[in-house]
Simulated scan of single mutants.
Amino acid sequence: MPAESRLGDGARLALTTLTIAPVRAGRVDRATAGTAMALAPAVGALLGVLTAGVLLLLDPLTAPLVAAGVAVAVCALLTRGLHLDGLADTVDALGSYRRGPAALEIMRKPDVGPFGVVALVLVLLVQAAALAELAGRDRAATLVAVVTATAAGRLGVTLACRRGVPAARPEGLGALVAGTVGPLALAVGTGAVALLAVAAVPGRAWQGPLAVLAALAVSAGLLRHVVRRLGGITGDVLGATVELVTTLVYLGLVLSG
């Protein structure tokens, strides 16, 4: 397949997988999936621009926490809430202390258990509180900070899909994307998001990149645990990774702010 065609198909797959964008799907295979997962941080940056736009538009009109809550809700709407659903399912499976097929069966159930509920509440509270804090900063820095966090969350997906990480099931999204991202694509994505993060905290050029790298390190450690427990990654694990990394980066950007 020509590189231009694979890039276009990968961009479409990234958008249809990670957002509600009404984009017509192109070719779908593992090569295209690898391109899509490598482009995930770019999709996250686009979502960040939209989320920051809502935050900055509403901030002068209402309380910062209200503006932040609406911004978090809009971001969830733009992703169909799938990442939040993946977070709840993954935490429920891990909280059950079961392994392999038994844990995967818990993830398949449509209901949300107590572990999942707690995880959702904590993540949404932290994200809203962090956005409320960011809203009080310079508007340009706020925009960069939100874009950094949302791009980093999707960079977590790129990390989870790197070569050597297996799929937990022979079917589904995890089977399509697991092990499809090469080291060069991961390095380029990490460098791009870290470079963007330099401007996320005025006066502290180091804080943004450190927040991104620390969040990815935590995500990598959790990913190893998930692979041991489940046997590999699933679409739910990818969603949980998005929310975990995004939340940790937000935390890192507002600490000592």
Rank of each mutant, 00 (worst) to 15 (best):
residue 91 V to K: 04
residue 123 V to N: 14
residue 82 L to T: 10
residue 108 R to T: 07
residue 89 D to I: 12
residue 126 V to S: 11
residue 100 G to H: 15
residue 92 D to T: 08
residue 56 L to A: 00
residue 58 L to N: 02
residue 85 D to T: 09
residue 83 H to D: 05
residue 95 G to M: 08
residue 35 T to L: 11
residue 130 A to M: 00
residue 79 T to H: 01
residue 79 T to Q: 04
residue 37 M to N: 03
residue 126 V to A: 13
residue 44 G to H: 11
residue 43 V to N: 14
residue 57 L to H: 12
residue 120 L to Y: 05
residue 30 R to I: 12
residue 81 G to F: 10
residue 101 P to A: 14
residue 111 D to E: 15
residue 131 L to H: 02
residue 112 V to M: 03
residue 90 T to P: 12
residue 30 R to W: 12
residue 81 G to S: 08
residue 78 L to E: 12
residue 107 M to F: 10
residue 48 G to H: 03
residue 91 V to S: 03
residue 43 V to M: 13
residue 30 R to Y: 09
residue 78 L to F: 14
residue 38 A to F: 00
residue 93 A to S: 10
residue 124 L to A: 07
residue 39 L to P: 05
residue 96 S to H: 10
residue 38 A to L: 05
residue 58 L to E: 02
residue 57 L to R: 01
residue 43 V to T: 14
residue 35 T to H: 15
residue 48 G to R: 12
residue 127 Q to H: 09
residue 67 A to Y: 00
residue 64 P to T: 10
residue 30 R to P: 11
residue 53 G to P: 04
residue 62 T to Y: 01
residue 119 A to R: 02
residue 90 T to N: 07
residue 93 A to F: 11
residue 124 L to V: 06
residue 30 R to M: 06
residue 79 T to L: 09
residue 89 D to E: 13
residue 50 L to T: 10
residue 97 Y to E: 10
residue 51 T to M: 13
residue 119 A to Y: 04
residue 97 Y to T: 15
residue 99 R to K: 14
residue 117 V to P: 04
residue 54 V to L: 04
residue 48 G to K: 03
residue 78 L to P: 06
residue 131 L to P: 06
residue 126 V to T: 13
residue 87 L to P: 13
residue 104 L to F: 07
residue 81 G to C: 03
residue 124 L to E: 03
residue 95 G to P: 12
residue 130 A to H: 04
residue 103 A to M: 13
residue 33 A to R: 00
residue 50 L to Y: 02
residue 47 L to E: 09
residue 116 G to V: 09
residue 50 L to P: 07
residue 40 A to S: 15
residue 82 L to F: 09
residue 91 V to M: 03
residue 33 A to P: 10
residue 46 L to H: 06
residue 91 V to T: 04
residue 66 V to Y: 02
residue 108 R to V: 05
residue 98 R to L: 15
